[in-house]
Design a protein around this nucleic acid. Sequence first.
DNA 1: GTAATAGTGTCTGTCAGACACTATTAG
DNA 2: CTAATAGTGTCTGACAGACACTATTAC
Lengths: 259, 259
Amino acid sequence: MTNGQEQNRPPYDAKKYRTPDGIPADIVMFTLTKQERRAATKSLPIFDLKVMLIRRKSWPFAGAWALPGGFSQEDESLYETASRELMEETGVEGRHLEYLGVYSKPGRDPRGWIISHAFFAFVEEWVLEKRKAADDAQKVGLFTMKEALEELELAFDHREILKDAYKRIQQQMLQTTIAKQFLPEHFTLSELYQVIQTVVPDFAELNFIRKITSTRSRQGILEEVRDENGQPLLSNQYSQRPAQLYRFTDFTPQLSIYT
Amino acid sequence: MTNGQEQNRPPYDAKKYRTPDGIPADIVMFTLTKQERRAATKSLPIFDLKVMLIRRKSWPFAGAWALPGGFSQEDESLYETASRELMEETGVEGRHLEYLGVYSKPGRDPRGWIISHAFFAFVEEWVLEKRKAADDAQKVGLFTMKEALEELELAFDHREILKDAYKRIQQQMLQTTIAKQFLPEHFTLSELYQVIQTVVPDFAELNFIRKITSTRSRQGILEEVRDENGQPLLSNQYSQRPAQLYRFTDFTPQLSIYT
DNA sequence: GTAATAGTGTCTGTCAGACACTATTAG
DNA sequence: CTAATAGTGTCTGACAGACACTATTAC
């Protein structure tokens, strides 16, 4: 594999250059906790968006909270690294694993030249609770975004990663159908509304039900669930009056600021 | 910097692990070429979205076309690497440099364990033409997306990167105001429309002018340009009848599939 | 006048936003 | 009956989509 021009640019030799000391993948594991409310009758639970963090045992940042993660190996892509770490940390595959970005500011890791790749994932609450129970409670924590961002001492540049991840899922919650990652296969419109509001507190839509169900331009995101006889499937899990169940279709509308 | 728990997890030593052989940043440099049409009178030019590629001289993929790029150094972030490479390749800072993603599939680079970070940038046409002229014409090429994706032999996984970059700027063109990166400070609505259509050929909007200028919900993306006396500024560069000039404000609307 | 782009008139059906109202059911 | 969520009626003004039409100017 040589040619006449090779004299101009000698074959690449990695050993001649300084190379990074490690390429980890760190994962922001989100979960939606559901807490029943004490009410006279059935009522909607209170949702909360939380994130799992691990307390570091050793240098650097011993005692601080950090995102779970680990180093990439030569025989895997970074997505595979993240997927493997997610499995190792929680025992499950998660409902969504997506690349967030690269964090490479010099000096971000006192151990050396370490470039981290952040991912985010959605994991069901019971998985993280199980993980927490299996381990020392001192070591694993589930925190709300506010706690994590404002109150905890975080290792490395993990506060920045968390902020970016939060921004990203807020944007995705409004612009894609990832809400389905937080919901069961079938859900009521109130549940969907609550999920959106939990992740994006600013979201408010007075005529939510009507808009989703009766505007042509949004037709196709959701569809009513019916049983084998074509009867509408209802749920009264959170309400006295049964509510229609919906599911997401696999259609995601393309938005535009000009249209 | 030690504590009692360190025996559980000995201090990190990079030399104990296999580490990557290099972390390059590759840059997709987009430009919008403008070609006057031969018409009886003034008319709109034909735009084309093009990308700059470099022909590789040596192993691996000698002779194939590749994205310009280079290896990251320990004292710089990957964004700084990309920025430096952009400057080295073109002599300018570019009008927009944005991270695209990481490409880490094992075996993507026969030289070893090399993880590439892709960026994309917008560069004015004359810069790339200058670069092309300064060099051997065999070495530097400006290609339309179709040519690059369908006709050229591309090195590494650069076809995949190009595809991803194309998808990304198409999405951004519709959902953000990056169109301004392709336009002069002041522009007519026809120019804007042409730019959008060039990047997103499917885009069609019969009432484009009216929608941009007279719908309240989109108010704020653009504003009319006026001179110091408050008189509207017009341009007849591409038309007999002068057209109102506009500029982008710094407002970008937030879209939602639910609203 | 002609060719080219810039921009408006107008019509229909749909949607957004606001808010009052009815429906259903467990307890 | 009450409390809670589910869902509808209704009204106004704004918008979308379609397409015909007028406006302006260089040549």
